[in-house]
């Protein structure tokens, strides 16, 4: 247990727990959206920052999670199984896609291209599902209009007790913390160390007896599951799902979250997601500047000025300050010596 981890965890819990006491219900609903996006950011940050897998289409799994939850919830009544399916199916899909990419020895650049293509295909497919022909059980897919009135999560085993927005916020908050702890634990485990080692040098890992294809596929599948969870939360937040969840904007945002917050950290992407979503909300309400334009400018500024992301740069700064102190102290003692 590193001190940094415990501090981050404590800060996260305190902030998430204090929020309901300090903001309005509207604020909490907003925060639920932020948490959904932060979960997506964790997914991207994990596979990219630790697994070294550059996915340009985490939105594929995010959207899939949203759609799977919507369709299953409409058909099943109770939300427990749909919730689990929204994690398991995207994970399985990611495992399948990962299997072909990694066992097929596709190069890194093409992995970006393939993931991007997959999310574009899903976007177009979802868009073309208008009309009565397109339905799964009782759920009409609805083409570009998407699926409205998705039943919200309910108390496990009590389909009649749907969560209210404040409860949904609570569930989302707990899930975010759980995902964070799970990933931290995983990275500290032997599996996590091998994942990072493969990012550092795939050949060496292979020559030591680890099969990088398997590790990458598992990493990608886990990332897919987490993105699916994020999509499920997103659908719950809005009560509907539409093809935009597969859109390039979602895909790009996931990358921006990580770039801003810091590649190779977990807290960084969470902060990045919250900051970007907050910014979008502010710009969205005032309607004077185009949100995408603003986002582009922010990204450009960060990539040029803070290329490592906020969190690592901040850490480096703190370290330099404390090092400066200790060096000054050393010099002082050195001067005292004869």
């Amino acid at each position: 247990m590193s001190r940094g981890f415990l501090t981050s965890l404590a800060a996260m819990i305190v902030i998430l727990a204090a929020l309901p006491l300090t903001v309005s219900l509207f604020g909490l609903v907003q925060a639920t959206l932020f948490i959904a996006m932060a979960t997506l950011a964790l997914s991207q940050g994990f596979i990219w920052g630790y697994g070294g897998i550059m996915s340009f289409g985490q939105s594929a799994f995010f959207g899939l999670g949203g759609y799977v939850y919507a369709v299953a919830a409409i058909n099943m009544g109770s939300s427990t199984a749909p919730f689990l399916l929204a994690i398991v199916l995207p994970a399985a899909f990611a495992a399948l896609l990962g299997y072909f990419m990694f066992y097929g020895r596709i190069s890194d650049a093409y992995i970006g291209v393939i993931t991007l293509t997959v999310t574009v295909i899903l976007f177009n497919f979802a868009n073309s599902t208008a009309g009565d022909v397109w339905h799964i059980g009782q759920a009409a897919l609805g083409g570009f209009n998407g699926i409205p009135s998705v039943p919200p999560l309910n108390m496990p085993g009590h389909p009649d007790m749907a969560l209210d927005p404040a409860q949904l916020y609570g569930v989302a908050a707990v899930l975010l913390v759980l995902v964070y702890v799970l990933l931290k634990g995983l990275l500290a485990s032997r599996f996590g160390r091998v994942v990072v080692a493969i990012r550092e040098n795939e050949t060496r890992a292979m020559l030591l007896g680890y099969d990088p294809r398997l590790y990458k596929t598992l990493t990608f599948a886990l990332g897919g599951g987490i993105a699916g969870l994020a999509g499920c939360l997103f659908t719950n937040w809005g009560g509907f799902v539409s093809p935009t969840v597969f859109g390039l904007q979602e895909a790009a945002q996931a990358i921006i979250f990580v770039l801003l917050g810091g590649l190779g950290t977990l807290v960084g992407p969470i902060l990045g997601a919250v900051a970007v979503e907050y910014l979008i909300t502010i710009i969205g309400t005032q309607q004077t500047i185009n949100a995408n334009l603003m986002l582009g400018v922010v990204l450009l500024v960060f990539v040029l000025l803070v290329p490592k992301g906020v969190l690592p740069s901040l850490e480096a700064l703190l370290r330099r300050i404390s090092l400066g102190h200790s060096r000054a102290a050393q010099q002082a003692t050195a001067e005292v010596r004869p």
């Binding site: 990072v196 990012r199 040098n201 890992a205 292979m206 020559l207 030591l208 007896g209 099969d211």
Partner: peptide
């Protein structure tokens, strides 16, 4: 596959060092 051969018991130090550059010596 290399990883299977490694598991059977062949280890190699390659000509151009293949190490995990971003990790500490101990972690390597």
């Amino acid at each position: 596959p290399s990883h299977e051969i490694a598991r059977l018991g062949i280890g190699i130090k390659t000509q151009v060092p293949n190490v995990f550059n971003g990790l500490s010596v101990r972690e390597n």
